[in-house]
């Protein structure tokens, strides 16, 4: 699953975020969940009990599937806008 940026949408300035050590390009204003999806990063975490792969699911702050470590704290990627230099750690199984 790779989200496709629609034509006809003005976007903010390009920003660079770091996901598990690798740079990912996005645009100012985009939510982290959307930016990751557009970068073809669909596996955000592993479920804690069985280690199943999980990705963003509800995109409205309810399901917690996109809760990952953003700048050192657990945050929901669908609710957090990207900023230049943001560091993201995808969560392994805890």
């Amino acid at each position: 699953m790779t989200a496709q940026r629609m034509a006809g949408i003005g976007r903010g300035a390009p920003v660079s975020i770091v996901v598990d050590g690798s740079p990912v390009e996005a645009f100012g204003g985009e939510s982290l969940a959307a930016a990751l999806l557009a970068a073809n990063i669909v596996q955000l975490r592993k479920s804690p009990r069985e280690g199943g792969v999980r990705g963003a699911f509800c995109f409205m702050g309810v399901c917690q599937e996109c809760a990952i470590i953003v700048d050192g704290t657990v945050q929901q990627a669908c609710l957090v806008p990207v900023h230049d230099g943001m560091t993201v750690t995808l969560r392994g199984s805890v």
Binding site: Q43, A56, C58, F59, M60
Partner: peptide, 13 residues
């Protein structure tokens, strides 16, 4: 599975 998302989530995206 990643890639399965809510219908409402799709509208938000």
């Amino acid at each position: 599975l990643p890639g399965v998302i809510g219908l409402a989530g799709a509208t938000i995206l």
